[in-house]
C-alpha cells in the first residue's frame, strides 16, 4: 500500500524544521546578555535596555497564560461545536453561534475590566477573557467542518450499521479534522498576541515589558516584549500548520 508521491508533505523534514525552530527560539530567549547588548545599541538613551524580569520567565508565563486559556477554548469549543451539530443540540446552534460571535467582538480589554471586580487581579480574569475571545474560531470551524461532511457519507455509515458515536469518531471527525485544526490554529495565534494585554491585570507574560515600557517610556522594553511575542506566534503558527497536515487523513491529501 504505497502513498502517492505528491504526499511528500508527510515526510519527516517539515516536522524536523518545526522542532529546529523551537530549539532556536528557546536558545534565543535564554540569551539575556545578547538582548541587552543589541537593544542597548538600538536604544543608546535607555537607562536599562532589557526588562528586569528574565525573558525566559516572561515567555514561560506567557506560554502558561496561552496554554491554559487556549486549552480551555479547545476543551470547551470542540465539544460545543459537536453538540450543536447533533440532533440534541441543533436547536441551540444559532444561540451558540451568536454567543461565541459576541465573545469575539467584545474587546478583551473590556472583558478584563469587567472580570476584575469579580475575579480579582492576576491570572484568572486574564484566562477568562482570552478563553472567551478565542472560542469563536474553534466553535465555528468545528461546526463548519462537521457540516461539510456529505450527507451521503453519513447515510452510508448509518446504513452499514454504525452507531452515532462510531459515525462521529470514524467518519465525521476524521473528515472535519483539518478544518477544526485550522480553527484551533487561528485561535491560538490570535491568543498569543492578545495575551499581551493581560499584563494590564497583572497576569504577567510578554505583555509586562510592553506595558511597563509604555509606562516608563522605555521603547527597548516594548520592542523586547513585542519581538518575542511575534516570534512565539510565528513558531506556534508553524507548529499548528504542521499539526493540521498531520491530522488530515491521507485519502484527502
Amino acid at each position: 500500500m504505497s502513498a502517492p508521491a505528491h504526499m511528500s508533505s508527510r515526510g519527516w523534514w517539515p516536522t524536523a524544521l518545526v522542532i529546529l525552530g523551537g530549539f532556536a527560539f528557546a536558545w534565543l530567549i535564554m540569551q539575556q546578555d545578547l538582548w541587552a547588548s543589541v537593544l542597548g545599541q538600538l536604544f543608546p538613551g535607555a537607562r536599562s535596555p532589557v526588562y528586569p524580569v528574565p525573558l525566559v520567565d516572561l515567555t514561560l508565563q506567557h506560554l502558561a497564560l496561552v496554554g491554559i486559556s487556549s486549552g480551555l477554548t479547545i476543551l470547551v469549543g470542540i465539544p460545543l461545536g459537536i453538540w450543536v451539530t447533533r440532533a440534541s443540540g441543533r436547536d441551540f446552534r444559532d444561540i451558540v453561534a451568536a454567543g461565541v460571535d459576541f465573545g469575539q467582538t467584545f474587546p478583551p480589554i473590556a472583558v478584563l475590566a469587567i472580570m476584575m471586580p469579580i475575579l480579582g487581579f492576576g491570572l484568572r480574569p486574564a484566562v477568562v477573557a482570552l478563553f472567551l475571545y478565542g472560542l469563536f474560531p474553534v466553535v465555528s470551524n468545528t461546526v463548519a467542518g462537521l457540516e461539510a461532511v456529505p450527507e451521503a457519507l453519513k447515510d452510508a455509515a448509518r446504513g452499514m450499521g454504525m452507531k452515532r458515536l462510531q459515525i462521529l469518531g470514524r467518519v465525521e471527525l476524521p473528515l472535519a479534522a483539518r478544518i477544526i485544526m485550522a480553527g484551533v490554529r487561528t485561535s491560538v495565534i490570535v491568543n498569543i498576541g492578545t495575551a499581551t494585554v493581560a499584563a494590564a491585570v497583572g497576569a504577567g507574560g510578554l505583555g509586562d515589558p510592553i506595558i511597563g515600557g509604555i509606562q516608563v517610556q522605555n521603547l527597548a522594553y516594548v520592542l523586547e516584549g513585542a519581538l518575542v511575542a511575534a516570534l512565539l506566534a510565528i513558531l506556534a503558527d508553524m507548529t499548528l500548520a504542521r499539526a493540521e497536515e498531520l491530522v488530515t487523513p491521507r485519502g484527502l491529501g
Partner: peptide, 25 residues
C-alpha cells in the same frame, strides 16, 4: 436494534458513499 439489523443487510447508494479518508480495503 437498527444497527444490528443493518449490519446484516447490504446497502448501496447512488452516490456510492465511499469514505474518502479510508483506503479501498
Amino acid at each position: 436494534r437498527p444497527e444490528e439489523l443493518r449490519r446484516h443487510i447490504g446497502y448501496v447508494i447512488q452516490s456510492v458513499g465511499l469514505f474518502p479518508h479510508l483506503t479501498v480495503a
